[in-house]
Design a protein around this nucleic acid. Structure first.
Lengths: 204, 204
DNA sequence: ATAGAGGACGAACGATCGTTCTGTATAACT
DNA sequence: AGTTATACAGAACGATCGTTCGTCCTCTAT
């Protein structure tokens, strides 16, 4: 068995987390099992859990990594667009795109985690809630900018806009995947665009 | 230990299922445990599972009961309203109402089950998908009726309307509960009304 | 050259998982 | 009243859960 340098060790922890993200996107953060994950990574259970301390610490690391992956896929590209409505439009496109490209093997990770912990208190609940609040805040700030620029009706509450976008994306992603509706993502995109006053189809 | 008559037996099975629905709405259909449920019902594990055969059969019975409960709370009351837009409005009110009244202890059961099985094949996936498809079909038929009556724009796709209502309700319910936003249900209701062309607040 | 730190292993822990089997007490039927 | 059917308890099953332990191996630093 080849040994690993310190750099490889860090890689190994990161790759363990990434594998766990993919696994959890299918079976849920609560559905992860040390044994199963260790098996997929061809590691021993003790070697795996040793990296994190205990299972909950691992779950929190996995959640953080998933949030990072989501941010990379959806938010970061949108930063290239102008603040306000153009950026919201870019977010919608990237959001639908990351669902279409299956950035998460089993559907949006944060949605899965939200459902798992919405009624179960604990550190993981708090982590998920904090991540969602942060994301809603980002969307709301962008909506506020758009409204100030006159790109959204003056009587449209930015908080409502953010909440509506989030609801549509998470609800639509789940339902579409569940019932196997190929057009679901298009419907979701159209609905999200409607929510910010854009025509159903992009001009591109 | 007192014995039970046949009628009591049926009651016992039904009450076991109802307790399981409440439990599963918190921990998920996959999170149910024979031992834990038996404990809550003050029964032995073998006595409990004996009613159903195996765990999967129990889960399917629990899911069916949850769908029934949802139908009772959301659809059946709306049947008193005129078909078309009035009935859709009643559905929205009842839908939000059943979330507010916590008909399910841990948030909408079907949403939880949708997320659990959207990426996991099997009989339970098929059951959940069938239930959601049926519900979307009901909403779509009502939207189609509303459009024919001129209460929805002619270019509004009834399938889109149904999908949008469902996405908003399930996504909004989860997010609101997760982040503990008391206004979330109001936001969701307003968004759902917007989706069917109604003003944010009901006239009542 | 050698001591130390740290990562990973295999084995084992008690607990709990879903399931099966057996015994028994009651209800329903003849 | 005697027989059959049924519903449940209790014990036990192999498997797997998360975790802990002691040991080995490799790398780094002195």
């Amino acid at each position: 068995m080849p040994r690993r340098s310190a750099a490889h060790v860090a890689d190994s922890r990161a790759s363990a987390v990434e594998a766990a993200v993919d696994l959890a996107s299918v079976v849920g953060l609560e559905g992860i099992t040390i044994g199963r994950l260790a098996g997929e990574l061809a590691m021993s259970k003790s070697g795996l859990i040793g990296r994190f301390g205990d299972k909950e610490a691992m779950q929190r690391a996995v959640l953080a990594a998933a949030v990072e992956r989501f941010t990379d896929a959806v938010w970061r590209p949108a930063l290239r667009s102008e603040p306000g409505l153009p950026r919201l439009e870019a977010v919608v496109d990237a959001w639908i795109g990351h669902l279409r490209d299956r950035v998460f093997r089993g559907g949006c990770f944060v949605t899965t985690a939200s459902v798992e912990y919405d009624a179960r208190p604990g550190p993981l609940h708090d982590d998920v809630a904090a991540a969602v609040r942060r994301w809603l805040g980002v969307l709301e700030a962008e909506a506020r900018h758009a409204r100030a620029a006159g790109d959204l009706p003056a009587d449209r509450d930015p908080t409502d806009v953010a909440f509506e976008l989030h609801s549509l994306a998470s609800g639509g992603g789940v339902a579409g995947r569940l019932i196997g509706d190929a057009a679901a993502l298009d419907r979701t995109r159209a609905a999200m665009r409607r929510a910010i006053g854009l025509p159903p189809a992009s001009r591109r």
